[in-house]
């Protein structure tokens, strides 16, 4: 085989490859393993600094307590169930909202000719250069002025505009053969019909790929939800964890904090692992 000639399959080299990859996997997994171990012991063991490297037997107790009350002896948290729901609403709304408005605007820019088309395209394009962290303080003021402070709308809508998704759909639409539009026109289908029956089904893989990336983006938001929500009922799980930690005191209810941490990681990690094919596609495409 030709690759053998390049030495890609030499045995000694492969052992080295296995060793390095295994080391890499261990380094990646160790922090999560310790969090998991921490979530299965009692707070006192952890607080004394006696946490072993293997799991204890309080898995169900800790997770049930974190899920339903979120309150330990020290921590006055929000129940994880509530926070997970908030994070889920936020991540889904951001992902689906971004996909919906971008696919529509990309369709307008590609399939129509109208005054102001290039202006609209550039207006969307330059937003690529303004991540939420940069414009945080002025955006905060706008949201407060609109009366959206401490609401789902304030949490979600400002994060929905996305140049990346628009560019990606535009790129994809340009590869759809013109013959399809001609055929549709001959059949008497209007633009909306064509969008619904042809463009949308063809975009399925692109939508799935974007969904994975955007869901993770939405779930992992930190600065924005921290600024824009005040009430406990709106707390997302990423914010909730850091609030539980406070100053990082050794006597915290670390078992509950770690159970919450594991639960917070679960949805985005599962999405990546089970939708890996689309995830890789989305990542690579959206950076082009």
């Amino acid at each position: 085989m030709s690759t053998e000639a390049v030495g890609r399959t030499s045995t000694a080299g492969n052992w080295l490859a296995y060793a390095i990859l295994t080391l890499g996997v261990v380094v990646f997994a160790f922090p999560i393993w310790m969090a998991f171990v921490g979530s299965t012991w009692d707070a006192a063991t952890i607080g004394r600094g006696d946490l072993p490297l293997y799991p204890g037997d309080l898995f169900w107790e800790n997770y049930a307590q974190a899920w339903s009350s979120g309150e330990g002896t020290r921590v006055r948290g929000t129940p994880v169930g509530v926070m997970m729901l908030n994070s889920l609403v936020m991540a889904l709304a951001i992902a689906l909202g971004k996909i919906a408005i971008s696919i529509l605007s990309a369709y307008a820019v590609v399939y129509f000719s109208f005054p102001g088309r290039m202006l609209a395209f550039w207006m969307i394009f330059v937003t690529l250069m303004l991540p939420v962290e940069v414009r945080i303080v002025p955006t905060y003021q706008v949201v407060v002025d609109l009366g959206l402070f401490d609401s789902y709308a304030g949490l979600i809508v400002p994060l929905i505009a996305s140049a990346t998704a628009t560019l990606l759909f535009r790129q994809f639409f340009l590869t759809i053969p013109d013959e399809l539009v001609e055929a549709a026109k001959i059949d008497g289908a209007g633009p909306l019909r064509f969008f619904w029956d042809v463009v949308l089904p063809l975009s399925r893989t692109n939508i799935a790929a974007l969904f994975v990336i955007l869901f993770i983006y939405g779930w992992n938001q930190y600065l924005w939800p921290m600024l824009i929500t005040r009430s406990k009922g709106l707390e997302t799980i990423v914010i909730g964890i850091t609030k539980m930690i406070g100053t990082g005191d050794a006597q915290n209810d670390w078992n509950l904090i770690m159970a919450t941490t594991i639960l917070a990681m679960l949805p985005p990690v599962l999405v990546v692992v089970f939708m890996q094919r689309w995830f890789v596609k989305g990542l690579v495409d959206s950076e082009k």
Binding site: L21, G24, V25, F28, P31, I32, M34, A35, I216, W219, N220, Y222, V238, I239, I241, T242, I245, I257, T261, A264, M265, P268, V269, V271, V272, V273, Q276, F279, V280
Partner: peptide, 15 residues
């Protein structure tokens, strides 16, 4: 190797 991408920056800090 790929999955830590899904971990939120703040959660990585907690770990």
């Amino acid at each position: 190797i790929v999955w830590p991408y899904a971990v939120a920056p703040a959660v990585a800090a907690v770990l």
